[in-house]
Design a protein around this nucleic acid. Structure first.
Lengths: 200, 200
DNA sequence: CTTATATTAGACCGAACGGTCGGTTTATAA
DNA sequence: TTATAAACCGACCGTTCGGTCTAATATAAG
């Protein structure tokens, strides 16, 4: 009972991957189960064998992506000495497609309903992600590289800054150009967009 | 042929208003025509008498909202002497619900298709809005209050900064608290989140 | 070989959706 | 008063969606 199990696992992974691409590209509602099956080259029955529902699949992706994202970030920032360096890497990550479900998240909540079980599960994941970011930001403050603003607010500002830039920049440019923009944006976020002339 | 015309116009306005609220709260897909009819207390036939389709209604709102938004902003910033003052007002605007279709926009494009006629019409509106913002930012640079960064990039950064903050802050707080956050965020955007200790 | 189980397929279902259509109401012009 | 057209209604239609179900197949275990 091994080869069978393995192949099934592979199928599940493949479905998840295709679904992630589609959800991130087309959003939650506009991606139908049929679309996913077509992309993954599997039948509907097969998909529903591996996932309980569309909601379930989405949340699975959300959890998965969240874990991968932070794991990778932590690995790549392990060698950094300053928080500033880490922030640039964080920005570079956000510029990529590594966590591409932003645009579908709110949509998902809207459709399944704010108080549904699915929304609750989703919020647990989101809260976990936010907590990670908050810890990340706290480090920056502790190291004296960020202004001593209220932690929650500062985290909200930083995380929304990057996620939005990702969201919007994809309208206009491809990934490579986007990364250059993110580098500049990180600098501006750190040093401000304002000219320093006035020292009132 | 007067009272009739007037009432018809009122009905249309009412439908648009209710639709706007719903779209901004629930998104595009999750808001059904029935929902809108129920909120506007009118029949489906009546809605389709005033609007050609759901797409049409959405684009109508987008145009309408875009015009109102800038008109109001220009009125309220007319007295400002510095760009900085204007930016705070811009931020305050973004914190409110005055242009609430952000979350539904990408969704809309996804659903109607990138190359559909509806998407093209939408993009005209979006481009108009972006052009306005760009002009706004250019003023800030010209007045020496913003760093002389590349105009397009700086505009993208600023506009996405505020729209995202709006998007995310609504997860956590109501409008009043949100406005306070936006004030602080504007300051940080101008002066940077980084601590200035190092002058390497 | 037989049996149990994991996996896959796709026809099918009811619900909900956007949109249509024939008909009704009502203010106004004649 | 009557004719007209704007404004409005809600039953209805075709389609698509998420999801189910039954049958078939492949494989491990006995």
């Amino acid at each position: 009972m091994n080869k069978r199990r393995y192949e099934g696992e592979q199928t599940k992974i493949n479905i998840a991957q295709q679904a992630r691409t589609l959800f991130s590209k087309k959003g939650y509602a506009a991606t139908s189960i049929q679309d996913i099956c077509q992309a993954a080259e599997c039948s509907k029955g097969n998909l529903y064998y591996h996932f309980k529902s569309k909601e379930d699949l989405f949340i699975y992706l959300e959890e998965q992506t969240f874990l991968d994202w932070w794991e990778q970030l932590e690995r790549e920032t392990a060698h950094c000495k300053t928080f500033t360096e880490k922030l640039y890497i964080y920005g570079n990550f956000a510029a990529g497609n590594e966590r591409p479900l932003y645009s579908a998240e709110r949509e998902f909540i809207n459709i399944v309903g704010e108080n549904s079980e699915a929304a609750q599960r989703f919020k647990v994941v989101a809260a976990g992600s936010f907590a990670k970011t908050q810890k990340f930001v706290a480090e920056g403050i502790a190291q004296g590289e960020l202004k001593k603003e209220e932690l929650f607010e500062l985290t909200l500002i930083i995380s929304s800054f990057f996620s939005a830039l990702n969201y919007y920049s994809l309208y206009f440019m491809d990934n490579e150009v986007s990364k250059a923009l993110f580098y500049k944006a990180t600098t501006l976020l750190l040093k401000g967009i304002g000219e320093e002339i006035r020292r009132e």
